[in-house]
Amino acid sequence: MNKLIYNYIKENRSRILDTWIQNMRNKADERLIKGVSTEVFESTSDEFVEMIISRLTEKEEEFLSLLTDFAEKVVRLGWPLVFVNEGLKEFEKIVYGGLVDQGLVNQDKLLEVVGDLDSFMTPMQNEVVNMYSQIWEKTVSLQKIALQELSAPLIPVLDRITVMPLVGTIDTERAKQIMENLLNGVVNHRSEVVLIDITGVPVVDTMVAHHIIQAAEAVRLVGAHCMLCGIRPEIAQTIVNLGINLNEITTKNSLQKGIEAALEITSRQIVEMEEVE
């Protein structure tokens, strides 16, 4: 590494940082600053510049650990990659500008300094992009797992009666999960009746209907009843328009009606208690 650049960065560290924060603040749009306090913005900026400098002064491992921490933090804060990239470029610009302003580089050394600075910044840029996308992928896959856990919950509401409330879009993966959980649930909870509630499902197309029909059929095969509840009026109409036959499945317009029917199937009912004297 060029001694001149190295010394300049080390000696002017705080000035570089201040300029950097100021310039980046102008570049950052509203969304980025909002929700992040000035302290967090400044401390994150400080870490960023610290990390760049550590690439110069510290061992490889030290830099990588700072980079990992930094990348995790900015992904969590929602700083876009473009902004981070911009930050690296800005750093380069400030350092170069400073060197020229202070008259530290003369004409014949100019090219050499530019080349050195570039060969320092470019590989680092790759490393930063790489780390950022790794962390990003990790975050997305964690969210996927979290979603999957939410996707088809089974709730044993009463002895032998289980409810599966579905909320949100049903894709093929989720449809599979619904079938699996239903069948496991019937066995594990010794359910005689399972109620699928689709109040929260925005669209019931042929794929969703097909999966519901298959799930109901499978439940019937393991000896339990399956009921479909919470069919909103507009969904009922589209199902009819599609020409889908749900005659094989018991349907109830609300979960409450479904539970009443389920009690009846299991030969029970809810009664009001007489006032005890």
Partner: peptide, 17 residues
């Protein structure tokens, strides 16, 4: 209205799928 919205979104769902 809500019913036609449901019809339109369902139709799009079928064609897109």
């Amino acid at each position: 209205g809500t019913v036609d919205q449901a019809r339109i979104t369902t139709a799009i769902s079928e064609l897109a799928r």
